[in-house]
Amino acid sequence: EEWMVEKALMVRTGLGARQIESYRQGAWIEGVHFKRVSPSGESTLRGTTWYNYPEINKFIR
């Protein structure tokens, strides 16, 4: 699984929702560690946020 939603990321990493938000707003790079995608497939600020687990795992190492 490369891309996953927040709940799956929480299960895989043990991070809480606030921790994920903090990383997203600070250290993680949009387009690398996470992306927002609307149902139409376009990038957007209001779409579902998807997280790239392999890239996040590399960051944590």
Rank of each mutant, 00 (worst) to 15 (best):
residue 38 S to Y: 14
residue 57 N to R: 13
residue 15 L to G: 00
residue 14 G to L: 04
residue 31 G to T: 03
residue 32 V to H: 05
residue 47 G to Y: 13
residue 42 E to N: 11
residue 7 K to Y: 12
residue 27 A to V: 11
residue 31 G to D: 06
residue 26 G to C: 13
residue 33 H to G: 00
residue 3 W to R: 01
residue 12 R to T: 06
residue 39 P to H: 11
residue 43 S to H: 10
residue 44 T to F: 09
residue 29 I to P: 00
residue 50 W to A: 04
residue 4 M to V: 13
residue 11 V to K: 13
residue 42 E to A: 08
residue 43 S to C: 08
residue 2 E to H: 08
residue 23 Y to P: 00
residue 50 W to D: 02
residue 10 M to K: 05
residue 9 L to Q: 00
residue 48 T to Y: 07
residue 58 K to A: 10
residue 38 S to H: 12
residue 37 V to R: 06
residue 40 S to I: 12
residue 28 W to R: 00
residue 8 A to C: 12
residue 55 E to P: 04
residue 24 R to N: 03
residue 3 W to P: 00
residue 15 L to Q: 01
residue 18 R to W: 13
residue 26 G to R: 09
residue 14 G to S: 05
residue 12 R to L: 14
residue 37 V to K: 06
residue 47 G to N: 10
residue 39 P to A: 13
residue 42 E to D: 13
residue 29 I to F: 05
residue 32 V to E: 04
residue 9 L to C: 02
residue 59 F to S: 04
residue 49 T to K: 03
residue 5 V to E: 15
residue 1 E to D: 12
residue 8 A to N: 09
residue 31 G to Y: 05
residue 23 Y to D: 02
residue 60 I to G: 03
residue 32 V to I: 12
residue 17 A to T: 08
residue 3 W to M: 01
residue 8 A to V: 12
residue 57 N to T: 14
residue 21 E to Q: 10
residue 43 S to R: 07
residue 45 L to N: 13
residue 21 E to H: 09
residue 1 E to Y: 09
residue 13 T to A: 04
residue 25 Q to M: 13
residue 14 G to N: 05
residue 11 V to D: 14
residue 49 T to H: 10
residue 18 R to Y: 09
residue 31 G to K: 03
residue 53 Y to H: 04
residue 51 Y to K: 00
residue 55 E to V: 06
residue 41 G to H: 09
residue 14 G to M: 04
residue 25 Q to T: 12
residue 27 A to K: 07
residue 22 S to P: 01
residue 13 T to L: 07
residue 39 P to K: 09
residue 11 V to A: 15
residue 47 G to I: 11
residue 5 V to Q: 15
residue 17 A to C: 07
residue 10 M to I: 09
residue 13 T to G: 02
residue 58 K to P: 02
residue 47 G to T: 13
residue 52 N to R: 02
residue 7 K to P: 06
residue 44 T to W: 10
residue 35 K to M: 10
residue 40 S to H: 11
residue 2 E to L: 08
residue 31 G to Q: 04
residue 14 G to H: 05
residue 9 L to K: 01
residue 6 E to V: 09
residue 57 N to C: 15
residue 53 Y to D: 02
residue 2 E to W: 09
residue 19 Q to A: 09
residue 2 E to A: 07
residue 42 E to T: 09
residue 6 E to P: 04
residue 45 L to E: 14
residue 16 G to M: 10
residue 11 V to I: 14
residue 25 Q to V: 10
residue 19 Q to M: 08
residue 41 G to C: 07
residue 8 A to D: 15
residue 28 W to C: 02
residue 44 T to G: 14
residue 27 A to Y: 11
residue 44 T to I: 09
residue 19 Q to C: 09
residue 50 W to K: 04
residue 8 A to M: 13
residue 29 I to W: 03
residue 25 Q to I: 10
residue 48 T to H: 07
residue 33 H to T: 00
residue 44 T to H: 12
residue 20 I to F: 03
residue 9 L to T: 01
residue 51 Y to P: 00
residue 45 L to W: 06
residue 36 R to S: 14
residue 52 N to S: 05
residue 59 F to H: 05
residue 9 L to M: 04
residue 29 I to K: 09
residue 51 Y to E: 00
residue 20 I to S: 00
residue 13 T to H: 02
residue 13 T to W: 02
residue 5 V to T: 15
residue 11 V to L: 14
residue 59 F to C: 05
residue 52 N to D: 02
residue 20 I to W: 02
residue 27 A to S: 10
residue 15 L to E: 01
residue 3 W to A: 00
residue 38 S to D: 13
residue 5 V to A: 09
residue 17 A to H: 12
residue 23 Y to G: 03
residue 30 E to F: 04
residue 60 I to T: 04
residue 52 N to I: 02
residue 2 E to V: 13
residue 33 H to C: 02
residue 25 Q to R: 11
residue 12 R to G: 04
residue 4 M to E: 03
residue 25 Q to K: 13
residue 21 E to F: 06
residue 23 Y to H: 05
residue 38 S to C: 10
residue 55 E to F: 03
residue 61 R to K: 14
residue 1 E to K: 07
residue 18 R to V: 11
residue 47 G to V: 13
residue 60 I to W: 05
residue 46 R to C: 13
residue 60 I to Q: 04
residue 22 S to H: 14
residue 29 I to N: 04
residue 43 S to T: 11
residue 4 M to I: 15
residue 21 E to N: 07
residue 45 L to T: 13
residue 24 R to P: 01
residue 35 K to I: 13
residue 25 Q to E: 14
residue 7 K to D: 14
residue 28 W to P: 00
residue 49 T to A: 05
residue 37 V to S: 10
residue 40 S to R: 08
residue 39 P to D: 14
residue 40 S to K: 10
residue 35 K to E: 04
residue 21 E to Y: 08
residue 45 L to S: 13
residue 24 R to C: 11
residue 32 V to M: 05
residue 34 F to G: 01
residue 18 R to A: 15
residue 13 T to N: 01
residue 15 L to N: 00
residue 20 I to M: 04
residue 22 S to M: 15
residue 49 T to C: 08
residue 2 E to F: 08
residue 40 S to G: 12
residue 16 G to Y: 06
residue 24 R to H: 04
residue 8 A to L: 12
residue 45 L to K: 11
residue 11 V to M: 14
residue 57 N to V: 15
residue 49 T to Y: 15
residue 44 T to V: 10
residue 47 G to F: 12
residue 54 P to W: 09
residue 13 T to D: 01
residue 10 M to Y: 03
residue 35 K to R: 09
residue 34 F to Q: 01
residue 20 I to G: 01
residue 13 T to F: 05
residue 9 L to E: 00
residue 56 I to P: 01
residue 37 V to M: 10
residue 13 T to V: 04
residue 30 E to Q: 05
residue 51 Y to Q: 00
residue 59 F to V: 05
residue 22 S to A: 14
residue 46 R to I: 14
residue 14 G to R: 05
residue 55 E to T: 05
